[in-house]
Every structure is written in structure tokens, then in C-alpha cells.
Amino acid sequence: MKLTLRIWRQSGPEDPGALRTYEVDGITPEMSFLEMLDTLNEELIERGEEPVAFDHDCREGICGACGMVINGEPHGPDRTTTCQLHMRHFEDGATVDIEPWRAAAFPVVKDLVVDRSSFDRVIGSGGYITAPTGSAPEAHATPVPKAAADAAFEHAECIGCGACVAACPNGSAMLFTSAKVVHLNSLPQGAPERETRVLDMVETMDAEGFGGCTNTGMCTTVCPKGIPLSSISTMNREYLRALRKGA
């Protein structure tokens, strides 16, 4: 397969950046999108050019590092991470546009790499439970109802990739924040901090410059882990409940 790539190149945070066109040949349908970029980068290095910077780590769809917008869609046409996207989803000779996540709270570091530490600060303000350290607690020490365990597990799947923010026309982090709030607030272990968690995480989320939710639903359609739109509604309910309780 042969592809024409139009990739966002930006040497640093201050550089205005621009889309640049590259031809890449010798792509097989079994390659992942990242392997396709590796192929391009090897060529660029051989030619003495600067390789395209992009984030990646696990390459098995669990770390959330490999964020990039492909043809206007976060992580491309398949509902998965870029490392799990295979080239068979593209036609031979196609032109593919590759851009970084776009959000005020995710400034571009270089090329396709953005700074997502705003997510870390949202988690740091409440996305944890306070528990004594030491040896692992006995697994049955705290009984968890099945429904609560299922809800917690569904939401614990969030890998913090930021696709939801990248897809949202308001650059909102509501889906990401709600995934963690619902995960921990569903569990008895999360109960002691139930109110302060949601209030503090939402406050940090707002302070980091993410936009508000207008319920467009773009976030869930791109989330590689299938976090549902109703999580946002659950977080709203938790938030209003916490405010009413005066926490």
C-alpha cells in the first residue's frame, strides 16, 4: 500500500506549525497505524530529516498514550486506540490527515505530542481513595454488591487517552472526569470521600481550562473504552447532591 500523509509538524510549543505532506510506500494491511508511522520515520531519519514525534507506550491499547486525530477523528475510523488501528481500514493511495489533540488544556509539545498533565491534576484532586498502606487487604474484607462492582469496573476502564476532549467541540473533560468519579463513587471504598471527590475534581477540571458539557455526545462515540454518556449524567447527579449536602 502507498499513502499520502498530511501530518501536523510543529517544532515546539512556540512554533505556529503547519500540515506537511509525505508519501509513504510499502505499507501492509496488517501493520498498525503506529507501525506505518515508524516506517515513515525510518525513511525520514535516513534522509536526515526530523522524524515525526508522537506519543506511544504499550502498543496494546491499555496505556492511552497514542493519541492523534486521524482524518478528523480521534484515533481514526475504528473505535479503538491508534496502536490497535490497522492499515486495512485505509484504501491504497488514500490521503490521510494526522493532527494532534486540539484543546486549550492540552497544549502541543511537538508535532503530534500534547501535554496531558491537566488530566493528572484532575485525578490528583480527588481520583483516589484514602486507605491505610501496608500489606494488601483481605479480598473479602469489604463486601461490594455485584451491580456496584460492575459499574465501577465499566468506568475503571478509562485509560486517560483524552480522545473525549479531542472530539468535544467544547474541549470538555466531562467524560474523563465522570469515569473516575463514577468508578470510585460506586464503591464502598470510595464512600468516605464521595462528596469532596466530585466537588474537587470538577473544580480542578474547570480551573484547567476545559470547556463545559453541551451533551453533544461526541466524547462517547470516540471513547476507545466505551465509557457511556450517562456517566456524565451520573456525575452531575453526584455533584448536585454534594452541593446540596453542603460538603
Partner: peptide, 18 residues
């Protein structure tokens, strides 16, 4: 105003699906 400021740069490859 806040929402527009949170997404200062749009994508070149547009894909409105809302």
C-alpha cells in the same frame, strides 16, 4: 465563551457529526 476558548484551534480535516 468558555467553551470556545477551550477549543481555540479547530481540525483541518473537519467532520461534524453532531
Amino acid at each position: 465563551r468558555r467553551d470556545l476558548a477551550a477549543r481555540p484551534v479547530g481540525y483541518r480535516h473537519r467532520r461534524a457529526r453532531t
